Every structure is written in C-alpha cells, then in structure tokens.
Amino acid sequence: MENYNVSSNPHDRDRITTTEIMLTVIIALLPATFFGVYNFGYRAAIIIVVTVASCVLTEFLYEKGMKKKITIGDCSAFLTGLLLALNLPSTIPYWMAAMGGIFAILVVKQVFGGLGQNFMNPALGARCFLLVSFAKYMTDFTYDGVSGATPLAIIKKGGDFDLYKMFLGSTAGTIGETSALCLLIGGLYLAARKLIDIRIPLFYIGSFAVFILIFNGNGFDYMYLAKQICGGGLMLGAFFMATDYVTSPITKNGRIVFGIILGFLTAILRKYGAGAEGVSYAIIISNILVPLIEKVTQPTAFGWEGKK
C-alpha cells in the first residue's frame, strides 16, 4: 500500500510561490514605508532595519539550532519585520524594536511550527506584546519634533483634526499607519494582483462604518466617519494584516463573516475602550475565532444525504 505525505495547511495550489507573494506585499508596503521615513526621519529608517534584521536573524538562528530547513529565503521573516516596524512609533528604543522582532518570530511563529502554523499575525502579536510590556514607549508619539497625541486620540477626547492631513499622513502616529493614501495605493495594488480577497477589507471597513455612523452619538456625521477610517491603523490592518493567508478564513463566506467581526470589534474598542485604537486587538481576537468561523461557513457538499 502506498503511503502519502500530508503536509500542513494551507493546501491551496497556485503557480505563484511563497517568495513571490511576500515580495509583492513588500512592494505594496513601499509607499507607506517611504512616507513613514520621510514623515519621521532617520529614526524610522533605523527601526525598520532593526526589526527586519532581528526577525530574519532570529528565524535563521532558530532553524539552524533546531536543524530545520532554513526558510529566510521565502522573505516571510522580512515581511514580518517590516510590518512590525510600520506598527511602531519612531521614538521607541531600538532594543525594544529588536525584542519585538524576536518575539514575533520565536514565540508567535516558530514555536507553533513556523509559517502556516501560527494562529495569529506575528507582527501584531509582537506589537501587542510591546504595548502591554512597554506602554509608555509605545504610546509616545512625536511629529515634527513635538510630542503629542495622535489624531484619533484628539478626536476621542472631543477635539478635531484636519481630514486632509489625516488622508495624506502629515500627523503623529506609528511609522506606517499615518498615510491613508499610501496604504490605499498599496492595498489596491494587492487587490489588482489578486493576492488578497477584497471581501475582507471591504466588509471590515464597511461594518466598521455602519457601527460608527449608528453609535457615534452625533447622528450620521460623515466627516467624523472619514476621520475614523483615515486615522489609526485601520487601513494598514484591513489591507495588509487581516488578509494574511495563514490567519484568515479559507471559505468565501467565512471571509465575509471575518470582515464583519473585525469591523464591529474595532468600532467597539475605539468607541468604548480606554484607548483610541483597536485594530491590533480586533485582528488578534478575530484570528482566534477563525477555526469556528470556518466550521460554521463550510460549504455544503454537492449532492444529498440519504435517510438513515
């Protein structure tokens, strides 16, 4: 009898390789990356180098030490480091950024079996780890030499902020989240290349918008809604992290449900949570729910079942 080797999920087959997918996502992130360096200066560039280097080196050393196949050539560790950097403030100490990279690869990715086995997005897992461990440094935002609150934090406290600046990105925030325009360009590029299922970001942003319009307390305030969509990490999370192949549902209806849950969780955390953000925790919570979402949205097999 012939024995078959059953590999780990996912089992989708395509001519495009993992390396090509990762490189395409990296290219899509370049507008936000370059703008982040322009917006926050040399420290942003150094943090990007530190997180990418720590992620790649950690993966190499772990696989070398465990006598496993070296996989840094697939660029997944590079992408994790880049996404982590874009989720960090430019003022964070370099050693903390490096610690985040190590945590992302070692704890979130490799301990669970490597690429394809992690149950949450490694970059977001590391960001939440740093946020819990070093809240002071993770919420210290400086723009144009002045330390201050992010636009979302100002709006949450009853203030106002220029929507035009939020759309372009000339604001305080993490390195890669400020420019909605750059993130939208990158997200549409991924959608055009058919590397992401556009249903996830559409239903994510759509359900978020519905909740915000209904429960913002000011009626159907579309200007307020636009600022909520452009502010924070919503665009970055919707297009680049919620669509992660490993941690998002594989069923079509599951991706719709996933997007709706993401939108409502983000809106609830922003509206009623202590902080002004909510994207990172919303995505991680939804990642944990993916097995259940896939179970209830599994398509019915063709045919029918006979009576027993």
Score class of each variant (00 low, 15 high):
Tyr4Cys: 05
Tyr4Leu: 05
Val6Gly: 03
Val6Tyr: 14
Ser8Gly: 10
Asp12His: 15
Leu23Glu: 13
Ala28Arg: 09
Phe35Val: 00
Phe35Lys: 04
Asn39Gly: 09
Phe40Ile: 04
Arg43Cys: 01
Ala45Glu: 06
Ile46Leu: 15
Ile46Gly: 07
Val52Arg: 02
Ser54Gln: 03
Thr58Phe: 03
Thr58Arg: 10
Phe60Met: 07
Phe60Arg: 15
Leu61Tyr: 10
Leu61Val: 09
Ile70Lys: 05
Thr71Ala: 13
Cys75Glu: 03
Phe78Asn: 01
Leu79Glu: 04
Thr80Glu: 01
Leu82Trp: 03
Ala85Arg: 12
Ala85Tyr: 04
Leu86Glu: 14
Leu86Thr: 11
Ser90Tyr: 02
Ile92His: 12
Pro93Ala: 10
Tyr94Lys: 05
Trp95Gln: 09
Met99Tyr: 00
Gly101Gln: 08
Phe103Trp: 06
Gly113Lys: 00
Gly114Gln: 03
Leu115Tyr: 04
Gln117Ser: 08
Asn121Trp: 01
Cys128Gly: 06
Phe129Ser: 00
Leu131Met: 15
Ala135Gln: 10
Lys136Cys: 02
Phe141Ile: 01
Thr142Asp: 07
Asp144Thr: 07
Gly145Ile: 12
Ser147Gln: 14
Gly148Lys: 15
Ala153Cys: 08
Ala153Arg: 09
Ile155Cys: 04
Lys165Trp: 06
Gly169Tyr: 04
Gly169Gln: 06
Ser170Trp: 11
Ala172Trp: 05
Ile175Val: 10
Gly176Met: 08
Cys182Trp: 12
Cys182Gly: 01
Leu183Ser: 11
Leu184Tyr: 05
Ile185Met: 13
Gly186Trp: 05
Gly187His: 06
Leu190Thr: 07
Lys194Leu: 05
Ile196Asp: 09
Ile198Met: 11
Ile198Asn: 04
Ile198Trp: 04
Gly206Met: 05
Ser207Pro: 08
Phe211Asp: 11
Ile212His: 03
Leu213Gly: 08
Leu213Val: 10
Leu213Met: 14
Gly219Cys: 06
Tyr222Gln: 03
Tyr224Gln: 12
Ala226Tyr: 06
Ala226Thr: 04
Gln228Tyr: 14
Ile229Lys: 07
Cys230Asp: 09
Gly233Val: 01
Leu234Glu: 11
Met235Val: 03
Met235Gly: 04
Ala238Ser: 14
Thr243Glu: 14
Tyr245Thr: 03
Val246His: 07
Ile250Gln: 15
Lys252Trp: 02
Arg255Phe: 00
Arg255Pro: 11
Ile256Trp: 00
Phe258Asp: 14
Gly259Lys: 00
Ile260Ser: 07
Leu262Thr: 11
Leu262Ala: 10
Thr266Glu: 12
Gly275Glu: 02
Gly275Arg: 08
Glu277Gly: 08
Tyr281Asn: 11
Ile283Tyr: 02
Ile284Glu: 04
Ile288Lys: 06
Ile288Met: 15
Pro291Cys: 06
Pro291Phe: 02
Leu292Gln: 08
Ile293Glu: 09
Glu294Lys: 05
Thr297Val: 03
Phe302Thr: 04
Trp304Val: 06
Gly306Pro: 00
